[in-house]
Simulated assay, not measured.
Amino acid sequence: MGGLGNMYKAKAILKEMVIDTICPNEITFTTLINGFGKDENVAAAMKVFKAIRKQGLKPNVITYNY
Rank of each mutant, 00 (worst) to 15 (best):
M46H: 01
V18S: 01
Y64Q: 02
I13V: 10
N34E: 14
K11P: 00
Q55W: 13
F36G: 01
N65M: 12
V61T: 09
N60L: 03
I62K: 13
N60F: 03
N34Q: 12
T31F: 05
N65C: 06
Y66F: 12
C23K: 14
A51D: 15
Y64V: 02
T21N: 14
P59G: 02
I33S: 02
E26D: 09
C23T: 06
N60V: 06
T31W: 02
P59L: 02
A45W: 02
K11F: 09
N60Q: 05
A43N: 10
T63V: 06
K11Y: 08
V18H: 04
R53G: 04
A51Y: 00
A51W: 03
L32W: 05
E26R: 10
P59N: 06
I13G: 00
I27T: 06
E16T: 10
P24W: 04
M1W: 11
K58V: 01
T30Q: 08
G3T: 07
G3I: 14
A44Y: 03
K15F: 00
A43L: 08
G35I: 07
Q55Y: 08
E16Q: 14
G37E: 03
K11R: 12
I62D: 07
T21L: 07
P59R: 06
F49C: 01
C23H: 04
M46I: 11
I27Y: 12
I22Q: 09
T28C: 11
P59A: 05
M7W: 07
N25T: 00
P59C: 07
E26H: 08
F49Y: 14
Y8Q: 14
K58M: 13
M17L: 09
A51H: 06
F36S: 02
D39W: 06
N25F: 05
L32R: 00
G37V: 10
K15G: 00
D39L: 13
G3Y: 15
I13A: 07
A44Q: 12
T30E: 04
A44L: 09
Y66C: 10
F36Y: 15
